[in-house]
């Protein structure tokens, strides 16, 4: 870590520091929501494969059900983009 003494820092340094914090926030938004959707998809995926093993025609439904938690990570991505371009 670079130790910055804010009282002595120039304006450029402070701005760069803030962009760094925004980048960390955006990363957390995508990363944590990615883990959350993975946890949700894990069971649904296993169940979908189980159902498909018996009835192949359930492939379409299984696929749709499996990707529904994907919305969580999309929200995370939206937040990250907002942070990056708007904030």
């Amino acid at each position: 870590m670079v130790d910055i003494n804010l009282a002595e820092a120039s304006v450029e340094q402070i701005l760069a520091n803030q962009r760094g914090l925004i980048a960390i926030g955006a990363g957390l938004a995508v990363g944590l929501s990615g883990i959350a959707s993975a946890l949700a998809e894990k069971d649904i995926g296993a169940a979908a494969v189980g159902a498909m093993a018996e009835r192949e025609e359930l492939f379409g439904k299984g696929l749709i059900m499996t990707v529904i938690p994907e919305t969580i990570v999309i929200f995370g991505l939206v937040v990250a983009i907002l942070l990056w371009f708007v904030a």
Binding site: K42, D43, I44, A46, A47, A48, V49, G50, A51, A53, E54, R55, L58
Partner: peptide, 17 residues
């Protein structure tokens, strides 16, 4: 629940047959 998601879904599909 992680151990049961696969087997219960498969068994339910078997039940429908």
């Amino acid at each position: 629940s992680k151990k049961y998601a696969y087997i219960t879904a498969r068994v339910r599909a078997m039940k429908s047959k």
